[in-house]
Each structure stands twice: as structure tokens, then as C-alpha cells.
Simulated assay, not measured.
Amino acid sequence: MLYKFKSKAAGDLIMTAPVGDRMMALVGRAPAAQGIFLVAQMPAAIAALEQGIADEEHARREAEAEAAAEGRTLPPPKDVSLRQRAWPLIEMLKRAHEADKDVVWGV
């Protein structure tokens, strides 16, 4: 499954199922083939995504500090960061919110 987010305020955004499912989990939604972010829901969704990014980065800094205290170096992350994955959706939600347009997917 692919997530194809659409809004009249921004270009389409496509995410693979694992990435889209993670975004849905961060904003407190179950993965779904169809859905909508209403304008009123967007500030909370943006805040949740930004909090997820902050949490991931904080955990990485703590792990690096712990490794440094033990004289080790952490290997670089294997995956693309949440910041990189979530940024397009956050930007879409911000633009849609400013334009007072909903964001839909699967329709």
C-alpha cells in the first residue's frame, strides 16, 4: 500500500506503507487506506510529528553521550531519520492549514 496525500494547497505527497504507517502512529491514528486531516486537526498533527522528531533526536543524543562515556562511538544510523521522513508531511499540513484546506489520502 502507498499513502498518497492530497490537498488543494500543496502538491501530492507519496509515502510507502511503513513510513505512512509510522506517521499515522505518531499522530495517534491507526493505519488506514483512506483518511482525512481536517484543518482543525492539523496543528495537533504537526505538533505530534514535531514531538516525535524531537524524541528521536533526544534518544540519539543520549545514546551518543552514553557511548562516549564508555569510550565507544555509535555507528551512524542505518535508516533515514524521522526528521527527513516527516518533513514533507509537516510542510504539507502547514500549507494546507494556512490555506484552510483539508488533506486527504486514498480517495
Rank of each mutant, 00 (worst) to 15 (best):
A45W: 08
R29E: 04
A44Q: 14
K6L: 13
V103R: 06
K94S: 10
F5T: 09
E56K: 09
A86R: 07
A45E: 03
R22A: 10
A68K: 10
R60F: 06
M42Y: 04
E62I: 11
F5Q: 02
I46T: 07
P31M: 10
P43N: 15
K6D: 07
D21N: 14
G35Q: 01
A68D: 05
G106V: 06
Q41A: 15
I53Q: 08
D12G: 00
M42H: 04
L49Y: 02
R60H: 04
P75Y: 05
G28N: 08
A40M: 05
Q34G: 12
D21A: 14
L89D: 08
V27G: 06
G28H: 08
M15S: 03
P43C: 10
V27Q: 05
A67N: 12
A59N: 13
R72F: 03
P77V: 14
E66R: 07
K78E: 15
V27K: 01
G20T: 02
P43A: 11
L82D: 10
A40G: 00
Q84W: 01
P31D: 10
E70Q: 09
A67K: 06
A67V: 11
Q34V: 14
A40T: 02
M42A: 14
E57T: 09
W87Q: 11
L89T: 05
I90N: 03
M92R: 03
A30H: 14
L38Y: 10
A63G: 05
D79I: 04
Q41P: 00
A45M: 07
H58M: 09
